[in-house]
């Protein structure tokens, strides 16, 4: 495994999602960018779809996590209940320690 494939986070770790909506294929929705959440699950490394979208060029493998966020912190005016969560699957290269 290369460094890029090695999981850097464990369940329970707090992470922040990086920002950027370049005009190319990315898998991290804008609404969750910049938000801070908690790693819920580490799945495994997958072939990086952001490379596969361009015929498998660029970085190859990407560890994937399910990251859990409080709805109340994600939206300015969330109308649901305080305990509600949003979970988004995010590749490691979109995450930094928080």
């Amino acid at each position: 495994m290369t460094d890029a494939e090695e999981p850097r986070f464990r369940p329970g770790d707090r992470v922040r999602v990086l920002t950027g909506t370049p005009p190319r294929h990315i898998r991290t929705p804008a609404f969750i960018q910049g938000q801070t959440g908690v790693i819920e699950v580490f799945y495994r490394a997958f072939k990086n779809p952001e490379s596969l979208a361009y015929g498998d060029s660029g970085p190859n493998m990407a560890p994937l996590y399910r990251v859990r966020f409080d709805q109340g912190t994600v939206w300015r005016d969330y109308q649901g209940c305080p305990n509600d969560k949003i979970c988004v699957d995010i590749y490691q290269h979109w995450l930094e320690p928080a």
């Binding site: 898998r27 649901g80 209940c81 509600d84 969560k85 949003i86 979970c87 988004v88 995010i90």
Partner: peptide, 30 residues
């Protein structure tokens, strides 16, 4: 993602306030 309880209400589903509602956005390989 932003109004899950409102969406579910349109399907006739009322989720109790006691229940934690988790939305899963399948953005990747799962």
């Amino acid at each position: 993602v932003v109004d899950p309880r409102g969406v579910m209400k349109e399907f006739g589903t009322e989720v109790s306030e006691e229940v934690e509602l988790r939305v899963l956005d399948s953005t990747a390989d799962i």
